[in-house]
Each structure stands twice: as structure tokens, then as C-alpha cells.
Write a protein that binds this DNA or RNA. Structure first.
Lengths: 296, 296
DNA sequence: ATAATAGTGTCTCTTAGACACTATAAC
DNA sequence: GTTATAGTGTCTAAGAGACACTATTAT
């Protein structure tokens, strides 16, 4: 390591005299889409409850976007990774610290935060609903779960000389206890000979702060994609669950009905039988399964 | 928009008086794994040339990692997105500006740059080799293509009480004109009941700067993954190509042989026939195809 | 018995893998 | 004709979709 640079400095000498340039630096925050699946509406004693996909949002107590709802998040500190920052935030917000966490995308559009230059490294977290108990928010910090509805509104395709532009508009509807937030997000895929790009943009937005509607769309798409070919959905399940429970979770994420027999074949290798059964369900008991510890 | 915050300010008033906090901010750079596929070794006049996966690296002309090779990249400016920064760098480095570009991952390990706090938002770019002509690097800025070899060295699996740890070691060998860079990167997947995490770390590293061996591994894995279920590989092809060419590109990316008949069936919907054929190849001419403009 | 869910069997259709066969230009 | 690649046909096995059937508990 005795190499010297064009100024005749060794690496140690160089680092000692190094001063960070005075060009501008961005703030970097993490924003998290924290999902869980819960039972909804008490129903007929013998019917199974419906499942709902939920996301945690926090009501902003200050400008900008005062009163709007935002993803939990915060600034990254110099001694931690973005992932550690996300885990720290998660712990503060939900008091849970053993979860599935996955980096999604880094949003860096200048102007996405009206205060200053802020990039957001976004994460998705999946929590088993039996673990969830959001801290009672104080006045300046109201946290609440919203039920997630995400559906295709419009699909369009335009042919170009050497490619195409595909546009999809999704309606994102987040239903809370006493508010409903509605956004329309457009996903534009441009594909030509050489290029192939995907861009999210917001068509309309009511009640969500910043570009968080985009982040949530991105998270849902990632979740939907990964559910199909990984065991990611199992991180939304409690220790023991029935295959019907698991199927319901798949269905609520994918927003479509699945066939029982095919579903069971497909997830068979992801789970392990136990000798436990549900009780007092008002109908035939169901075998409980757990995650396959052997992995995939 | 006449809402007032706890200090009685409207949003406009708030933004006007807002001063960015004096907490520390990271520098944010983009680093790019720029891939192309080229023909190697002139062979028997009637044999087809072998294909090689290549990546562009730049030799560092200053500390730190003086003399080592690094991914092309640079700092993001306040008026651009990370993606625009990547495109700008790409244009400067290769003079190409119509490419496939995809964000990979944001690396933020404190200490990954010995100078100061630097996060790297990494991208992967795919270039059709017929377009490539790297600018002749001046002395302080030598750019060169390296042939990529990435193979599994060791695989290990350990069962835990409620999950498992899977470890894979890959050897990354980058072969340049007069240097060969060798790194060993370990990918650790920890999966328990609730959690599921993946971590890259460097076991050994010769000649590559910073954590770029990790970034390159990540890029190769992404490329391999996406080749299987998208049309991403077509961005490495010239306008017209034979199906055998395309198969060779798949094979060099996946590092395994494919069966011709099955391959042709699989990619059929990605391509369009033309009426052109190869000429003077020393054997039966081959039909030329182009990318399916209808999209997938 | 009835309601409601649990769980299985099997037919079909599609697709991937494997392999063998035929075709054709340059020399 | 020989060489080397181009391109196709078909058998098999595995998997997904569809649907129907049987099983079991609480009331």
C-alpha cells in the first residue's frame, strides 16, 4: 500500500488531508410500506372471516403535507445502513423487530420533498398480524392501519416504429377508520429497440403525503410479483395456520380467487404438517401447518 | 391550503422559513454495471465465434484504491434523479445513450468509502455490442472491458431451530487484456419464522475498488434471474440477429448449455421473423430475427 | 339432518426436456 | 461429398387449471 498518487501522497496521507467537497448532498430517508393481513367483519359464527391487506400510515403533524398520511420513515444516520434505519423506524413505530424486510427502490426525483433535496430509499416489511400492536399515537403522531385496495383502472398500448408504450392506471384506495385516501397512479412502460424503461407517476392524489402513493404502488406490485414464486407470503402468517388461511392471504394479495386443489399442490413444499387442528370452528376442523423449516 | 401548523404557519410560510437541519448528509453516487456480449477468438472460418459477457471498468487514477478497477459512476447532482445521473455517466463513458437501464440496489454500509459517507445507488445497463466504442481513456482515466466469469464455489446449508442459513460462495473472475481481477463473494440467506434476509459480503478481493465486487455479483444475479422470464437479453442484441446468436447470449449469461428446440419454442414470442438471412457463413444460412415490436 | 368448510382424486391441456431427424450453403 | 450449422418433429414427464367428489364437525 505504498503507492503514491499524482500529488505524491500515499493512501493514508491522502485520507488524512481529504476534505469532503463542498458540493451539495441530499438527505436520505427510508420510507417503509409495512403490510399485514387481518381478519375483517365478524360474520356468521360458522363462516370464516374475510382477510384484508393492511398498510400502516402516519398522519403528519407538521408541514409539509400537514394532516396528510405518510409512510413511516425517517432519516438515515451516518453510522447505520438504510436497512438498519428502516429496522429502527419499524421498531419505534410498531415495537416489532423480527420481520421480513426488503429494499424496494430509491426514489430521487428532485422536488419530491418541497423542503429540500431528499432521496427516499424505500423498504417493504411484512408482519404477522398476531404480533402487531401499533403504539398508541400521541397527538402529533397518529398511526393507523389502512385497508389496501389496488385495482387496474385502465390499460393502454400504443405501437411505435420500433417498440411500444404500455400504460396502466391503477386506483389505490386506502380505507382507514374514518378516512379514505384515493390516488391514481400511472405506470408507463416504454420499450424500443434498445431501451426499456418503466416510470411511475401520480395522476391524482388525495390525502397521501409526498410521492408515497407511488411508493405504495411499487410495493404492492413487488409483493404481488414475489408471492407467485417465493415463500414471501408465509411471513404474513402466524406460527400455525391452516392452508385455507394461507390461500386467503394469497387471494387478498393477488386480488383474485384461486382453486383449492391447485393451490395446495403449489404450496405443499413451502409448509410442514403439524398434528394440531383448529377447534370449535362450527364445521370440520382444519389441520394446522407451519412454515417449512427446510427452506426452499 | 390554508392549514396552519402548531406554530401557526401556513405551508408557504413554513417552507420559506425552513432551513435544512444541520445533521450530516451522505454523498450519493451511482455506480453502473454496464454489460455487453461480444464475440471472442477468431476461429475456423466455418465455425461460429464464441460469445463472452463483458463488463466495463475504469482504472482509478487517485486514492483511494489507486490503480484498482472500479465501476463507472459519479455523484448525483441536486437537479437530477439517480437514473439521470447514471445516464449522464454512461454517455460520458461510452458515448451511448439509448440503452436498457435498471436500478439494482442502494448500498449504504458506513465505511464502504474510506473518504467519507457515500451511498451508492447502483444500476445495470445493457448495451448491444455493435454500438459500443469506449472512448479512448486518457492517462488518468483508463476504461476497459473485462470478460465476466461467475461461478459457484461452495454451497452450504445449516438448519436452525425455526429456519435455516444458506451460504453460497461465488468466485467472480474478471479477465481484462493484461489483468485478471479475482474476488470471492459470499451470499448469506438467513430465514427464520418471521425474518428472511439476504446479505452479500466479500471474502477476498483483488484489484477491484470499494465494494464493487458485491455490486457486480448483485448485477449478475439480477441479470441471470431476469433473463429467464423477461425479454431483457434482447437489449444485448443488434437490430438483426439469428436465433443461435440469441441462444449463445442466453447461454453465456446463464453459464449453461440450452437445448435448441426448447429454446426456440421459449423465445418464439419475443422475436419476429425477417426475410433476411446470414451470408457466407461457411454453412447453411440462418434466418435473421428482430425484437418483437408488439411487446410481451 | 344441515351448513359450512376440509381435503382428495382425476381428467385435460400446456409446457419443458430430451433426442433424433432433415435441410442447406460454402468449400 | 464433407463440414458445420439451421431448423423441425415428436415422445415423455411434470405441472397448472378445472371440476367433482368425499369427509367431518357444531349446531
Amino acid at each position: 500500500m505504498e503507492q503514491r498518487d499524482m500529488n505524491g501522497l500515499t493512501e493514508q496521507e491522502f485520507l488524512k488531508q481529504y476534505r469532503a467537497g463542498d458540493y451539495e448532498r441530499p438527505s436520505v430517508a427510508t420510507d417503509m410500506a409495512i403490510f399485514t393481513v387481518t381478519d375483517s367483519e365478524e360474520s356468521n359464527y360458522r363462516k370464516l372471516p374475510k382477510k384484508e391487506l393492511q398498510i400502516l400510515l402516519i398522519q403528519r403533524g407538521g408541514h409539509p403535507y400537514l394532516g396528510n398520511w405518510a409512510l413511516p420513515g425517517g432519516f438515515v444516520r451516518p453510522t447505520e445502513t438504510t436497512e438498519q434505519a428502516a429496522l429502527r423506524e419499524l421498531k419505534e413505530e410498531t415495537n416489532v423487530d423480527n420481520v421480513y424486510l426488503e429494499q424496494l427502490y430509491t426514489f430521487s426525483e428532485p422536488g419530491r420533498d418541497p423542503r429540500t433535496w431528499v432521496m427516499s430509499c424505500s423498504y417493504m416489511a411484512l408482519i404477522d398480524s398476531s404480533k402487531v400492536q401499533v403504539k398508541a399515537g400521541d397527538d402529533a403522531h397518529k398511526a393507523s392501519w389502512f385497508s389496501v385496495n389496488y385495482r387496474l383502472l385502465k390499460e393502454q398500448k400504443e405501437l411505435l416504429e420500433d417498440g411500444f408504450i404500455k400504460t396502466k392506471q391503477y386506483e389505490l384506495k386506502l380505507i382507514g377508520h374514518d378516512v379514505t385516501l384515493t390516488s391514481v397512479v400511472e405506470c408507463t412502460m416504454t420499450s424500443t429497440e434498445a431501451t426499456s424503461a418503466m416510470k411511475y407517476s401520480m395522476i391524482s392524489n388525495e390525502g397521501l403525503a409526498f410521492d408515497h402513493a407511488k411508493i405504495i404502488s411499487y410495493a404492492i406490485e413487488r409483493l404481488r410479483g414475489k408471492v407467485e414464486y417465493t415463500d414471501i407470503a408465509l411471513h404474513l402468517m402466524p406460527k400455525l395456520f391452516t392452508l385455507t388461511n394461507l390461500q386467503q392471504v394469497y387471494e387478498v394479495i393477488l386480488d383474485k380467487q384461486l382453486l383449492k386443489a391447485a393451490f395446495r399442490r403449489k404450496v405443499a413444499y413451502l409448509v410442514e404438517e403439524t398434528d394440531n387442528y383448529t377447534e370449535n370452528a362450527g364445521h370440520r376442523p382444519s389441520r394446522l401447518f407451519r412454515r417449512n423449516r427446510e427452506g426452499i
